[in-house]
């Protein structure tokens, strides 16, 4: 594993080992908090902190961790980081803390984090473990943000691009007023043909529908790539 590149490991975490669409892990927070773009993004950041912290610590301690009690130690390390992020969110992002609620403490039992600790960080040096942590986290954030944006747009008809209290969408429009004009024009032309917002998308069934469609797309893309590879190797499909 030592000769794998840092970037390569990151990309593997996003595409080939995407925690949500490919490994199908950690679905509980994915389905519950992705009612909007901002919630998904906030959850993704909290997760990234824990994922990176846990991967680094487990990897650093991997020669010291007695195999018999490795799971309790993983949990202890993960718990520490989760409690930290929980306290930090409460103090510095009270709105986000309120919206994410129970799902931040629940990162403790997020199977992605403990899965990476057991399957990767415990067997690899620190550097690749960091890459793995970044890759998996980015894959997770992409999944959350995709789901959040799609559900928010289909369910409410708008998307608020808000990153931790900083409204990116508003900022872009303020700097380039022309963009708003274009968006309004496009929406104005399309609106008679668009269906009204479907409430179901921001409720639990909407989460399942969206993730099913996204997983299907991911699977199709993966299969296409594999078929191409096989054809290149001379198989006839």
């Amino acid at each position: 594993m030592a000769n794998k590149s840092f970037i390569g490991e990151i990309i593997r975490g996003i595409i080939k080992d995407n925690p949500v669409f490919v490994l199908v892990l950690g679905l509980c927070p994915v389905l519950a908090v992705t009612t909007s773009f901002a919630n998904g993004f906030g959850m993704g950041l909290a997760f990234t902190f824990v994922m990176l912290g846990s991967n680094i610590m487990v990897s650093l301690l991997r020669k010291q961790i007695p195999p018999d009690v490795r799971i309790p130690i993983f949990i202890l390390i993960i718990c520490t980081f989760v409690t930290m992020v929980d306290m930090l969110l409460e103090a510095y992002q009270p709105d986000m803390y309120e919206r994410l609620g129970i799902f931040v403490p629940l990162i403790v039992v997020n199977c992605i984090v403990i899965g990476r600790a057991e399957a990767y960080a415990n067997r690899n040096p620190v550097f690749p473990s960091i890459a793995d942590g970044i890759g998996i986290s980015m894959g997770f954030i992409i999944a959350l943000v995709l789901l959040g944006s799609i559900r928010e747009f289909l369910g409410t008809g708008t998307i608020v691009f808000d990153l931790l209290g900083y409204d990116v969408g508003k900022d872009i429009i303020m700097r380039f007023p022309a963009i708003e004009l274009v968006i309004e024009l496009v929406i104005g032309v399309l609106s008679p043909y668009l269906p009204p917002p479907a409430t179901v998308m921001v409720t639990a069934p909407g989460a399942f529908l969206t993730i099913a469609v996204l997983m299907l797309l991911f699977k199709i893309m993966g299969d296409r790539k594999r078929m191409k590879q096989l054809r290149k190797e001379g198989y006839e499909i």
Binding site: L61, I73, L76
Partner: peptide
């Protein structure tokens, strides 16, 4: 080892 790790965790959390 378990005690050590728990102690470090406790210290970090206290600081936070």
């Amino acid at each position: 080892k378990l005690t050590l790790i728990a102690a470090v965790a406790a210290a970090v959390l206290t600081a936070t």
